[in-house]
Every structure is written in C-alpha cells, then in structure tokens.
Design a protein around this nucleic acid. Structure first.
Lengths: 188, 188
DNA sequence: ACGGTTGATGGCAGGCACTGACATCAGGGT
DNA sequence: ACCCTGATGTCAGTGCCTGCCATCAACCGT
C-alpha cells in the first residue's frame, strides 16, 4: 500500500484546470488548488515552479520533442525544409488533444499573465529550433530567421486550429500557413 | 515653488535602472527603488503597473508609433512591402539609443521574468501590425503571417544591433534580415 | 529482523509584490 | 476666502513564493 495517493502532479493539474475554468485564474489561490487535490500549498510548489506553470505541463515535452525531431530530420539542402519536417513531427503531438486544447486555450486567453507565459514557451521553441539548425550547420542570421518563420507558421496554424470547433488536421493547417508565408514573403 | 520634485516617473526609471544594473533585478525591492527616487513604494505603483514595467517605458510609444506608421504607410500592393515600410519607420525610434539599449538589454537578458516581459512586448507589436494590415484589407492568415514575419525580422535585426558594440544602422540590419528571410523562405 | 537511508509530504515563518482605503496639503480656479 | 484637484504618503491586508525542519512509509543492506 502506497503511502500517498498516486499521481500528485496530475491531480494538481486537474484541480487547477477545473478551478481556473470555473472562477478564472486570478480568483483561485494556490492553497485552494492544493486543497482540492488533497495536498498542501507547499507541495504544489515542489511540482511547479509557479502558479502559472501548472497550465503548461506539455511545454517541456514539446520542446524536447522538437530537439529530437531536429536530430531525426533527414538531411535537407534548405533550412526551411528541415523546419517544415520538424513542424510536421510536432503536429502529431496535438493529434488527439483538440477538445482539451480548446478548453485550455480559453483559460489562457482570458488572462494576461497566462498569455505572457505562452509567449515565452513559443520563444523557447524558437530558440530550440534555431539552435538545432545551427547545430546542423546553418549559419546564424538564416538559422534564427528560419526558426522564427517556423514558429510564426506554428503560431498562426495553431490559433486557427484552436479557433475551429471542428477538429481539423493541425498538420494540414501548418502546411497551408507555410504556403501562405512563402507567398507573402515572395511578393514585392 | 512646486510641491514635489518634478519628473517622479523619470526618477523612478533612473533609480530602478541603476539598482538593477548593479545588484540584479531580483535583489532589488520596489521600496529601495522608490527610496532612491525620494518617493514611497505606493507611489511607484501609481506610475508603473508592476516592478518589471519600469524597464519598458518605451514599449507603448513604440507600439502606438507602429500603429501611426501603418496609417502613414503608402498604398502598397503587397503586405510585406507595408511591413518593410513600417519597420523602416520604427528603426528611427532607436536612432540615438544604441548605448542605452545595450545596457538595458544586459539587464533584461540576465533575468527570466524580464525576458518574459520582452517577449510580450514583441507579441504586442505583432498583434498591432497584424491588426493594421487587416484594417488595410489584407485577409487574415496572410495578415498575421506578414506581421509575424516582420516581427521576426525586427527581433533578429535588433538582437544583432544590440550585440554589436559599434552603433551600426538598425535599419540596415533590418533590410538585410528581410532579404535573408526572403531567401530562406524562397528555398525548397 | 533490525537499522539506516531515501523521498514525498506537511508545517511554519517570513519576505516581498501588489492593492484598497483614507489622509495630507500646495496650487489653481471661482 | 473658499473649495477642488491631484500627486503623494500611510497603513493594513492578501497572496505568491521560499527556506528550513519534521514526519514517516517504503526500501535496502546487513
């Protein structure tokens, strides 16, 4: 018999999500979250660096997934092809999470601090991408720009994916966004 | 005779900057900042929404400057040309601030919370740009992507500008980044 | 079987960011 | 002379977050 109920971290995530959805992020205290999960505030901070982080449990797996996808990606003559391959890979991460992503996005969109944290996660993805491209020999202004372009594609496609009540294919939306980005930058 | 010393806000900015540069953002309390400026903590919060905001006094002028530049921008057949014109305009904002920007950037780079806030300011610029493009009739996925691409160019160029001890021309760096972005996305 | 170690948790005290409510008081207008 | 405005001060309070120590089941080596 275990000394404690299992999956404390998961229980905290779930409790936080429910309370945020019902009352809003600011109206919920960390002590309330911990209480609903049958734990104490102190323990919450052993699992999450701060109150916001409980809403971003997937960020680290996603970033490490990007890094791995960068290593798996086939040799490509042009960095943008590598970026496209990595995005294709990342799209699978969200395959079965459309409903969950929509609810989560509603919570985040309602609060400035949470939008702030989301912006950081995107910047982290961009840095990871750029670093991986440099490791593959892409010189620096190009590597950063290709990475930023890729994140722009991801950001726009993800926003459309989340805005649509129907669960479309995120990868399809990313391919479309990539085409549109190429069209936009090719002009003039 | 004035009842208070003038320019309380400016004094707070200056005091905060000096203390952050010397001791680091986290090691400085708001009460210390206010004390050096000859004011109280409560008054600090009447001038700035939070402790970080004192380091971003130019963000709002910059964003409204973007919005105005969008209205001034000449009719252009392609959104990316409008974006380029707006960036050209924004470049003037930084003309005489190279040394200051470098010191400020060192403070921000040293702290995660401040980098977080900077990411938000960039996202705000992107939203402003996208909204302006939509107001000019650019349809939506293209408007968002052109705006994100523009911010990517700004971000990369600004990083290079700040990294260089010599005060190069930011606009030149942005034009170069734009060329490289076009080259990168045109490949494949 | 015994004892030491480990690791997740609880309890507590405290610092600091931030906020609301009220007081103060020079200057400017009437 | 009077009131009003507006920037500031004062104070109390909430909540985020951290450091430190205690607890105690499970595990491990002997």
């Amino acid at each position: 018999m275990a000394r404690w109920e299992p999956n404390a971290r998961g229980r905290l995530e779930e409790a936080a999500f429910e309370l945020f959805a019902e009352h809003g992020f600011e109206q919920v205290t960390v002590a309330e979250i911990a209480g609903r999960a049958g734990l104490t505030e102190r323990t919450f901070y052993r699992h999450f660096a701060d109150k916001r982080e409980v809403l971003f449990p997937d960020a680290n797996p996603l970033v490490t997934g990007l890094a791995e996808a960068l290593e798996r990606a086939p040799e490509a003559p042009h960095p943008i092809a590598t970026v496209a391959a990595v995005l294709e890979d990342a799209g699978g991460f969200f395959a079965d999470r459309h409903a969950y992503s929509r609810r989560r996005n509603a919570v985040i969109a309602a609060n400035a601090e949470l939008r702030e944290r989301e912006a950081v996660k995107l910047a982290l993805m961009a840095d990871t991408l750029a670093g991986g491209l440099r490791a593959r020999g892409v010189p620096d202004p190009a590597a950063s720009l290709a990475a930023e372009a890729g994140i722009a594609v991801f950001k726009v496609a993800h926003a459309r994916w989340v805005a649509d009540p129907e669960p479309r294919d995120l990868r399809e939306l990313m391919r479309d966004a990539m085409r549109q980005l190429k069209a936009v930058t090719a002009e003039a």
